[in-house]
Design a protein around this nucleic acid. Sequence first.
DNA 1: ACGGGCGTCTTTTTT
DNA 2: AGACGCCCGT
Length: 740
Amino acid sequence: MDYIKGLNDRQREAVLHDEGPLLVLAGAGSGKTRVLTHRIAYLIEERGIFPGNILAITFTNKAADEMKERAIGLLSGNLDRIWMGTFHSICVRILRQHIDRIGFERAFSIYDRNDQIALMRECIEELGLNEDRYKDRLVLNMVGRIKDSMASPDDYIDERYMDPVRENMRGLYRLYEKKLKHNNALDFDDLIKRTVELFRADSDILEYYQRKFEYIFVDEFQDTNGAQYQLIRLLASGHRNLCVVGDDDQSIFGWRGADITNILSLKEDFHEAKTIKLEQNYRSTQNILDVANSIIKNNNGRMEKRLWTDRDRGKQVVVENVSDQDDEARTVLNRIWEHSKDGHYKLSDFAILYRTNAQSRVFEEAFMRNDIPYRLVGGLKFYDRKEIKDIIAYLRVIQNPVDDISLRRIINVPRRGIGRVTMGRVEEYARGIDSNIYDALMDVENIPGLSARARNSLRSFVDMMNGFMERQKAIGIGEFIEEVIEKVGYIGELEDKGDEEAQSRLNNIEEFLSVAVEFETYNPDGSLEDFLAGISLLSDVDKTEDRDDAVTLLTVHSAKGLEFPVVFMVGMEEGLFPIIRDSESDSDIEEERRLCYVAITRAEELLYISHARVRTIYGRMNYSKPSRFIYELPEDLIDVKGELNRDFHRGFNDMAINPNERLIRVRDYTRRPMAPSGRVAVDQDQIKEGTKVKHAKWGFGIVAQLKDRDDDREATIIFDDVGLKRLLLSIAPIEIVNGG
DNA sequence: ACGGGCGTCTTTTTT
DNA sequence: AGACGCCCGT
């Protein structure tokens, strides 16, 4: 049949796999998308599976679209009914149907990182906690990780050892959850967690979906977290036709809760799973693959895999030593010029990969100066612009009036004379009637202490919003949004201002309108909720327009799953890539190395790696050494331009990583590998996140975060008196405090 | 209520 | 270096 034409043996085996669970370990560029699309087509055409009974989960919406398109190319029918999308969008789709079953309303808002921060700040303030000691982002990270693993705060924090700090942490978590509920809002983590909760709460709903999804596919399985795994496990436990595709070497989202041991869990929960390895690479030259292999082999506990290709050796990988970031940009531009002037490569064949978003700026400037079109993935995002966020906040309030975070954002934008004092009174009243701001506003005549002026402003604001809610039912989304922007006075204020910035804001609003119109065209029945959810669940890659012919600038994380004929890996300096927070500690080097591996394997034909001797960070000059990863490259395969001092870095070889670390690693978050014995100051096994400790100098504190170091563990501890500190457990003079 | 001036912190990576 | 929040003067 057509579905297996041109596939290698292993790929064919995966495509034709009969019933039951299947684990495809797919090396970079080994044609996994091909396997997925062909298998889907095969199931539909040959096995007569109805597309609506297939669920395929991808990492970005773009990947879903691509997969859909490619599968359609193999089919005679269409794929309209297939469920294909990201974890988050699939969950939203389910929750919009059934979330009332677990006490939310179907019009729930979806909170992004900024909304989360705003909400957490409220919590910290409301509990009267010291903002220096309880950093919103740190608390949020903790909360997020708890949610990712499906644990509740009470699972996480042991009742027997309560103390003020721990009590506060739990209080914050609880208040945060309460506020989300109060605002009828879900954060990103909730989208997954609440869906699992829904399934656990209502077996009828679960059974419905278990029966519906006869075949389930999960792409990029190595980057799923605990909650996502639970979701898959629940859904797949009926038909057990679960096909996951992943590569442990490309696991780069550990910091976000991704748990590579899900692969082990899968083998336990679906013990009959068949494993197929894809090792033939169709993307890169042999030189590039050798370079990639020579990097990744320095990691421990891998599932052994060795990429090979029958393609040519190709050109040598070039390592460039440049003086600073401007020199780096210049060098890259010259290379691009060199390779594109004879028409051999198009601009869209080039990609610049960096470790942190901040590095894009120099390149943007260089491209702009030289009039070279580029497209920037991530970074300063369109949807992060103030004016767009304001409009979205309006729409959210119209959709879900109890969303206080959004309401507070726009109640005085544009200026309506509703200031801090007025809002203080309104919110106090809202708390008094145990309700939301919007409810309070509906009751504006009864709010004490308002000036007549403020009362009038509030009244007309509510009237206006009520009007929108009615109006929304009557007309299409594009027209509706245009009306909102107009009536709200946003355009008027900007036009009055009339400077360059205001003009660019107006243009952005114009662009937002065309997004809405486009949405309406493609989704004639789409609701305002669908529109808003669609926007908030876009990944950076999704948000970036495919410009005709432009160089792509993006982080290595964003580049996952993409490929380019020519790749520039820039900023390959110790401390930046691998990134290291402070001079004392290195972060998880193995994940950094995997990141490096992902970057290298994006390249098809040419790969340039550059490192600068001087880099300006925070406006300060820093001398930097070449990345340790550069020294892991095989000498005979690289072409070094300029000096590379091999003695310089010899020290890194001594920092060998405990070879057993990977194997010891267990999937229970609370159990961690022991550090090597000999210089253990405290029984490390006893120390968990949440453990109360006493430090010789800094007194009492609570462990907020634990991280594995090379052969040690680093604890982030919040001390009662001195606040946040980072310590290595093997040498820190701390002891565990029992009781309360 | 609002805008300007000054001090602070930042940067890991993102659905 | 730049963004952001905070304080103060209008």
